[in-house]
Amino acid sequence: NLLWIGLVVAIFCTRYRDMHPVVGSVMSLMFFITPIVWQVDQLPPGRAHLADLNPLTILLELMRQPILGGVPAPMYWAVAAIAAVAGSVFAVALLARFRHRVAYWL
């Protein structure tokens, strides 16, 4: 998943050079809304489901649960696999479309 995300962001930032600070700001925002320094259990019961809408939460739980001795939910594996396939197809299509222009953007 990180490979296709990096490829899409690289193509985007190559085309629009001013987007580097914007990507940095978005990454800072994603750091705070993803349960990296806080636990999903700390959310109120009515809002805990909102954490599952964040795709980075799902990827983080796939890494965190085995380290903590738990097993990630099968839904997390399915969502991560679907995101990997769909994102990879999108990234390859984007690269195929714009690969001849990247040299001019640099």
Score class of each variant (00 low, 15 high):
M75T: 13
Y16G: 03
A86Q: 00
L50V: 08
V102I: 15
A73M: 06
A78V: 13
H49C: 04
Q42H: 12
G6D: 04
P74V: 09
A86N: 00
M63K: 05
R99V: 00
L3D: 14
A84S: 15
L106G: 05
P74H: 06
N54V: 04
R64M: 04
V23Y: 03
V40L: 09
L60N: 10
A80L: 07
A51V: 01
P66A: 06
L106F: 14
P21Q: 04
I67M: 12
V40C: 03
G70R: 09
F31M: 14
G46L: 07
A84H: 06
G6L: 11
P55Y: 12
V85T: 11
H20L: 14
P55W: 11
A93Y: 06
W38P: 11
V8F: 08
I82H: 00
W4A: 05
L3R: 11
G24Y: 07
A80G: 08
P66H: 04
H100N: 07
V71G: 00
A84W: 10
Y76E: 12
W105I: 02
V8M: 13
D41E: 13
P66G: 04
T14I: 12
V23N: 02
C13D: 07
Y16D: 10
D41S: 13
P21W: 03
A48S: 12
L3K: 10
G46W: 03
G69S: 02
V8S: 09
D41I: 05
Y76K: 14
W105S: 04
D41L: 03
R101M: 08
